[in-house]
Design a protein around this nucleic acid. Structure first.
Length: 453
RNA sequence: GUGGGCGUAGCUCAGUCGGUUAGAGCGCCGGAUUGUGGUUCCGGAGGUCGCCGGUUCGAAUCCGGUCGUCCACCCCA
């Protein structure tokens, strides 16, 4: 629109959106911390070269890059892994393994926006570095699943599709696919669901597969195509396939033991676009299949070394806040709105104003939240305003109350009210009331102010 | 980056065949003789019809461009 308009693909967070964002972040943090992960962060602006090599052309083509005033080629970070790799490169050697780190970076990609895809988003990243065992893969997926579950979504709402790139490669080998065509086949598999069988088949044959081979492969990729056991029976005479299926079996077994069996399923078409994954990969989707991926991740054992750090094995995921937020709103799981506050303090005449201001001060000092009327108004107006402001209770200090050294406290939900002495309303009285301070907060965040009085 | 749908008040939209000062509902602000709320009634603010240009006596309306937005591709969170 005008030169002053918000840039496309960027977001503004009014109180409602901010409430949702804070809600999501706080649950993400709680889950990651619950698994013993430590939070870290890095610079949002990085040298372009950090992304030039590694991520491959896919992300490089979407970099939000420019030249700064010092003629440096820089980019807003499109992902967190290179930053993580650098941070570990300089201090990871000295750290006890495995390293469990998480972050909630704001990331930027210069792409055309669409539902669930903007130029800016927040992403929960959790990685385990320095452990090659499948247990680390399973644990990382468990963090991802729990991060979504903690927001109120269950097995009917979302699922994790799991696969292993090594298995796909082995299957292609068993089918006699020439090794030159393997990369192309991975891409075709990744897109099979969207492009449809006819187009996929064409694509595979263009890669040099026979029509029988293409047929076989698409059969494995067909929707709801069967379990890992089916695949093993099918390739019972191919030791490579059986061997590469073992990690996935252990993975499934571990998730089952963690009580998350209902959330994970084998899916031969999940190979992930990014070229750096080396083993087990996974994606989280809404069950209805209406939205884009909520989360994607997997094992990337070669990457840290290639980025110049120690060649440590690593596994991790990224979970965006945009698609997840859409899903939460759709399911009515977003918070109602900005948090409400405890007291709206009303005074009727100028003479009571100092009493009201003093009452507010003491209520806040006691850990409550209070708003004082800014102007004289009619009682009717004051109460209407208090009700719409989001306050839980109104405190009235008019001439009658002032003369009696009292205040009227009205519950704005029930309409019940009582007159209390000014002193007992103030810190002591609030603390005594069971419905008062103990529940004064609105969530985990509100715990901050309460301790330091 | 490629192709397509859509841009009228803060929001949802109406606006006839091109015709004078562009409308409604919700929301917002104020009031209904100053101590009890989200109801009702009255009043008010708020729009260069996304922007620029063209056609026309005359454009919210037709045409072109542009920007924004949404969808598909691409890619991915």
């Amino acid at each position: 629109m005008t030169a002053l308009a918000k840039l496309r693909g960027f977001r503004e967070f009014g109180p409602d959106e901010m409430a949702l964002r804070n809600h999501v972040f706080s649950r993400w943090r709680a889950v990651a911390c619950g698994y013993g992960f430590s939070e870290y962060d890095g610079p949002p602006l990085e040298p372009l070269a950090l992304y030039a090599e590694k991520s491959g052309d896919e992300i490089a083509g979407q970099l939000y890059e420019f030249v700064d005033r010092g003629d440096r080629r820089v980019a807003l970070r499109p992902e967190m892994t290179p930053t993580l790799a650098r941070m570990l490169g300089s201090r990871g050697r000295a750290m006890a393994k495995p390293i469990r780190w998480f972050s909630i970076p704001q990331l930027f990609r210069y792409e055309r926006n669409q539902r669930g895809r903007l130029r800016e988003h927040f992403q929960l990243n959790a990685d385990i570095v320095g452990e090659a065992a499948v247990a680390a893969d399973a644990e990382v997926l468990a963090v991802a699943v729990d991060a979504v579950r903690a927001l109120g979504l269950g097995p009917a709402d979302f699922t994790a599709r799991v696969n292993d790139r090594r298995l796909v490669v082995a299957v292609l080998g068993a089918l006699g696919v020439p090794s030159a065509a393997v990369g192309g086949c991975l891409e075709a598999l990744d897109k099979a669901e969207r492009t449809g069988p006819a187009a996929s088949r064409q694509r595979l044959e263009a890669l040099g597969l026979s029509s029988a081979q293409a047929e076989d492969l698409l059969g494995l990729a067909a929707a709801g195509a069967g379990s890992l056991d089916d695949l093993k029976r099918r390739f019972a005479d191919a030791p490579e396939v059986l061997a590469t299926a073992a990690p996935l079996e252990e993975h499934a077994c571990l998730l089952e033991a963690m009580g998350l069996g209902a959330y994970a399923e084998f899916d031969f078409t999940v190979v992930r676009g990014l070229a750096y994954y080396t083993g087990i990969v996974f994606e989280l989707f809404d069950r209805a299949g209406e939205l884009r991926a909520i989360c994607g991740g997997g094992r990337y054992d070669g990457l840290l070394g290639r980025l110049g750090g120690d060649p440590l094995p690593a596994v991790g995921f990224g979970m965006g806040d945009v698609v997840l937020g859409e899903l939460l709103r759709e399911r009515g799981l977003a918070p109602d709105g900005p948090p409400s506050f405890d007291f709206f303090v009303i005074w009727l005449e100028e003479a009571q104003r100092p009493l009201a201001l003093e009452a507010c001060r003491r209520l806040r000092k006691a850990g409550g939240s209070a708003v004082c009327a800014l102007r004289p108004r009619s009682m009717r107006k004051h109460l209407a305003m208090a009700a719409r402001s989001g306050a839980r209770r109104a405190v009235v200090i008019g001439p009658d109350e002032a003369a009696a050294g009292a205040a009227t406290v009205r519950d704005l939900e029930t309409g019940e009210q009582e007159r209390v002495a000014l002193e007992s309303l103030l810190p002591g009285g609030v603390a005594r009331s069971p419905a008062g301070l103990a529940n004064a907060g609105t969530g985990p965040e509100s715990a901050h102010g309460e301790g330091d009085r």
